[in-house]
Simulated scan of single mutants.
Amino acid sequence: MLELFESLRDFTETGGIVLLFIGGLIFTMWLLILERIIYVNSGHRQFKKHVIATWQARTDRASWNAEQIRQAMVSRVSLKLKYSLPIIQALVALCPLLGLMGTVTGMIQVFDVMALSGGGNARSMAAGVSKATIPTMAGMVGALSGVFASTWLTRTAKTERTHLEDALIMQRQG
């Protein structure tokens, strides 16, 4: 276990302080993603059953008022499904930007070494180059994983809304 922490510390030192921010951002993003996945697989199903049962228990399912109530029910379910999706999407967009900030800080370190050594000492520039590339890689990996999860959650929310609209059938007047 101690070796794991030492490896993590070494990796963080190699990537610079920006890597800690990227790690915190990715951790937060995945906590929100996992919360949404758990909700979709458990809480949403119960809420959907409750909404359908409430609609089926109504005697008036044909009037204009009933249509408005139906739309309100669908909207409530849709809002619950999409609860933290904008935050997740913002965190996904922020990952590569923080990676770019790591690139800039790493390149500043490279230029500082070049200014102090007066030339192209490759060994002394290596630390700056790693501080420039590792945060970029971490930001892109976080963004890619978040894009896939965010897309799945968005598609699932849209599909579930459509299924609920189909389940809440309006009766014909006449």
Rank of each mutant, 00 (worst) to 15 (best):
S150P: 04
D166T: 10
G106D: 07
I169P: 09
R123V: 13
T162H: 13
L164Q: 08
L97V: 13
G142V: 05
L144N: 02
G99Y: 03
G119I: 01
T103S: 03
G119E: 08
V141W: 01
W152E: 05
D112M: 06
T105G: 10
Q171G: 03
G146F: 07
G146I: 03
V129W: 00
G99V: 06
R172T: 14
M170S: 10
E165S: 08
G139V: 00
L100G: 02
A138C: 01
G120P: 03
L100I: 05
V129Y: 02
T154E: 14
K158V: 11
A143S: 10
M170V: 10
G99I: 04
G128S: 08
G102D: 05
S150C: 09
A115N: 15
L100A: 01
M140I: 13
T162V: 11
A138M: 00
A167H: 00
P135Q: 03
L97A: 14
F111Q: 10
S117H: 02
G118I: 07
S150H: 06
I108L: 15
L153I: 13
S117F: 01
N121R: 08
M125N: 11
K158N: 15
M101K: 02
A127Y: 07
T103G: 10
F148S: 11
A126K: 00
L168H: 09
M114W: 02
A157W: 08
G128V: 07
L168M: 06
A157L: 12
M140R: 07
L94Y: 00
M125H: 12
T151Q: 13
M137L: 13
M125Q: 15
R123C: 02
R161G: 03
T156E: 15
T156S: 14
Q173C: 09
